[in-house]
């Protein structure tokens, strides 16, 4: 499966889970689907048969509310039986509506924003101290960069030259109650990371070639790397795109059919 097909499959499975569970957050799950497809399809050194292998790359999803597309990704990769996705958000299921570390392949439970960057820094520092080669990836939302804990970690990572750490910002421009520009402006975001001594690249977060090139860029300096992925909330289904309501709304039966058709 190439990464384009992988991303389509992620979105389709995600839609199904959100529809069946009458859940929220499909917009943010769709905006990062291409990033996950490229990471899990072509970049991460991981083995679903050995999800805890010491030398695996670590990927942490910080925006835990968008877990449906991560669960879909892990299922498609074979970390667990794909039918388990049907239990999403149901009573007694490990597949909670925010990312759960009880799901095979998930490194860290997340749901409260601004937690993953510090943990990722700890993992990256541990790898440095032990001279281990794994790379640590953390995917954050744009809105959660309001959290000060992220900036504590961003300072820290640069100071300690954690060039085994990559932060991907899913910059879909919409947060919980409005557009990022209207709630707490982040721009110029690239300049902020640059001034914090990070290597920064901006890409179209739905362009797989650009994403792959940014992940595979081996001209590493001693700085941590930030990939600002410009994305569209709800990407993949025209009536969900760039619309705040799909942070909350669950599709109706008609919307579900129409969305699956588009995917």
């Amino acid at each position: 499966m190439d990464t384009i097909e992988f991303a389509r499959e992620i979105r389709s499975r995600t839609l199904e889970m959100v529809y069946n569970a009458k859940a929220s957050h499909i917009g943010g799950a769709f905006s990062m689907a291409d990033i996950l497809a490229v990471l899990y399809g072509s970049v991460l050194k991981i083995d679903p048969a050995e999800p805890k292998a010491a030398d695996r790359d670590r990927f942490i999803l910080s925006k835990g509310h968008a877990c449906t597309s991560l669960y879909s990704t892990l299922a498609i990769k074979g970390f667990f039986d794909i039918d388990l996705l049907d239990t999403y958000s149901k009573d007694g299921s490990f597949f909670m509506a925010h990312t759960s570390h009880k799901v095979p392949g998930v490194e860290l439970s997340t749901g409260s924003l601004g937690h993953a960057m510090p943990v990722a820094c700890g993992m990256a520092l541990a790898a440095k101290r032990k001279s281990e080669k794994q790379h640590i990836y953390v995917l954050v939302s744009d809105g959660e960069l309001d959290e000060g804990s992220n900036w504590e970690a961003i300072l820290f990572a640069a100071h300690h030259h954690l060039n085994n750490l990559t932060c991907i910002v899913d910059y879909n421009k919409i947060q919980s109650l409005g557009r990022v520009d209207d709630v707490i402006q982040l721009d110029p975001l690239k300049d902020k990371f640059v001034s914090f001594n990070w290597d920064v690249v901006e890409v179209d977060g739905h362009d797989h070639d650009q994403l792959l090139a940014s992940f595979n860029n081996k001209t590493l300096t001693d700085k941590p790397r930030c990939i600002i992925a410009h994305t569209i909330k709800g990407k993949g289904v025209d009536f969900m795109q760039d619309d705040l309501k799909w942070h909350y709304q669950s599709p109706s039966a008609d919307q579900y059919s129409a969305a699956q058709k588009q995917l």
């Binding site: 943990v119 700890g122 541990a126 820290f156």
Partner: peptide
């Protein structure tokens, strides 16, 4: 090699501790 001054940033310090513990410390 087993000491770190995380700076005046306790949320980050505690998250870092979690990450280090996940890696076996």
């Amino acid at each position: 090699d087993r000491f770190l001054n995380a700076g005046i940033a306790e949320q980050n310090m505690t998250g870092i501790a979690a990450g280090l513990a996940m890696e076996g410390y």
